[in-house]
Amino acid sequence: MRISRFIYTALVPAFMAVAFSFTMKGQNADAVISRINAKAATIKTIEADFTQEKDLSILNDKMVSKGKMYYDKGMLRWEYTSPYSYLFIMNGEKVLLQSSTSTTTGDVASNRIYRMIARIMVDTITGKSLDGGGDFSVKMETSSKGNVAVLTPLKREIKSMFKEVRLHFDESDYVSKIELVEGTGDKTVISLSGVKYNAPVSASLFEVK
């Protein structure tokens, strides 16, 4: 009897965890994607803190960076504050890359790569990347922890850097975590916290001089 109780209490939850972690197909996946797309369409602004953990497998370690991001109607400000200073701004017309030692600006209109990267960053942060924009193929997974969109790059430039992007959604269908998986298996995980949606964001945050 004792063994039976062990089997029940130990194995049943394990079985349930496996049974309820699966790839959604067909109508279920479409319904979840539609719901997420609908939520993404309501997002006009985002303000959030982020923590980025990058696997450094050769050093058996991780590099942890922190910063703050702002999004407003297609404009993005992504700023690392610790342990290094680095600022990226894309305001629809101009791009700014600023480190502690240098500043680079460029025109979005004249640079296809800038446009693509800015679009992908914005679409993954908001969840709009699920709407079939041609950058990724999308597969939905669900588990007890929530829905995960597994994005496989279609474009060569992104494929060369990542084999997969995993977007984790919270119970409100907002993006809570982004996993960037390299071909070697090393990951960069970006977690959002203190997220404010549709709060006023100052236009000065996106100025590129």
Partner: peptide, 17 residues
């Protein structure tokens, strides 16, 4: 030495020994 070159976004250029 062993290490890595990455950009600030965490994109790795290469590891080295």
């Amino acid at each position: 030495m062993k290490g890595t070159f990455v950009n600030e976004f965490g994109v790795r250029a290469f590891d080295f020994k």
